[in-house]
Design a protein around this nucleic acid. Structure first.
Lengths: 183, 183
DNA sequence: TACAATTTTCAATAATTACTGAAAATACAA
DNA sequence: TTGTATTTTCAGTAATTATTGAAAATTGTA
């Protein structure tokens, strides 16, 4: 690996964490490298800096693009594809949340919706279905809430988070709003 | 697999999704089975219903317990270990969020904190470190915000989510609170 | 068009992770 | 204690996933 010590540490860490986040080691490394790179990189530069095969980089880029975590750019007078990560970390955060939701939450919500349409065949299934309904309602609620929050601008979202210890107070106000349906 | 159709569908789905959520297929299946079960199950009952080996169940239970997603209980006059999932879906949600944070976020936060203490050796590292700082600040902010929300009771949390479209309005109020430091 | 540069695909294989059966360990009861 | 029920461990194997090199496909240029 052809990187300065600080950068190598960062890249290796993302490689290791990759598996916990649902991507393989090399994809994690590629993303990390692009994230800290001051300029877009082409595939050969990635090969050179990370010491993996050209084909591996090609597949990794495809995966990262499917997550919308990197975008392809082109430099004047250069045929090669260059890649960069979005600059704004808030944007990255939101993209990641969106994709995770689409891949990890939606399929389950969909299954639960289906399952709730079934007529339970016996007492055992009746109980199971009741549990599925509890899960469905929670996931749907959290999911809808996420949609709302997700629509906020980065600045608003940042403000919301910076609220910190004030969240409790906001909720007092929230309860008032809830009572006021046509507001 | 020795389950009624509705239940089998649910169990199989959780098995498939397991890999996206960071556990293997059998662990996903065991959890799903326990979630919909009207009473605690012992290891042999799980073996019988899911058709996997006894040792696999044993390892699966250990993993699920490490996630705090199942707890062991005992029945009067029965030496065997029984397992059940917490009943309250909100509690499950919070536990999951806590564990995910501990396993997926904290290690990265820790690496970033370390990396930011280093003195960059050159311009390349200086830029990389600036990017790491952006990431660090975002993760720390989101993480602290999560702590706050996490402390709320299930009811309050539910109310917060049900707010839905009112979130924007709450934020108007939030901004006022922010200006009022000693409130 | 023909050529060169570049990217993608894919079959082979390497590496990792999951699963099992058998043996060992543990916990309890007589 | 000793014996029995139960759980855990772990080495071997199966299954899955990741990685590579070589070939094919694509893209742009002369």
């Amino acid at each position: 690996m052809n990187l300065s010590p600080l950068n190598e540490r960062f890249v290796l860490h993302f490689g290791e964490m990759g598996s916990r986040w649902g991507v393989n080691r090399t994809v994690g490394q590629i993303y990390a490298l692009l994230f800290i790179s001051p300029k877009p990189l082409n595939a050969d530069e990635i090969v050179e800096q990370l010491g993996m095969s050209r084909s591996n980089v090609s597949m990794g880029m495809k995966e990262l693009q499917s997550w919308r975590l990197v975008k392809m750019v082109h430099l004047a007078g250069d045929r090669r594809d260059y890649f960069e990560t979005p600059k704004d970390v808030w944007e990255i955060f939101r993209t990641l949340a969106e994709e995770k939701r689409r891949r990890e939450i939606e399929p389950t919500l969909s299954l639960l919706r289906d399952a709730l349409l079934d007529t339970p065949a016996n007492e055992n299934e009746r109980h199971a279905q009741a549990r599925m309904r509890e899960m469905h309602d929670l996931v749907e609620l959290a999911s809808g809430w996420f949609d709302e929050v997700h629509r906020l601008s980065p600045e608003t979202l940042e403000n919301l988070m910076k609220l910190g210890a004030k969240v409790q107070k906001v909720l007092g106000f929230a309860d008032k709003l809830r009572g006021n349906k046509d507001d």
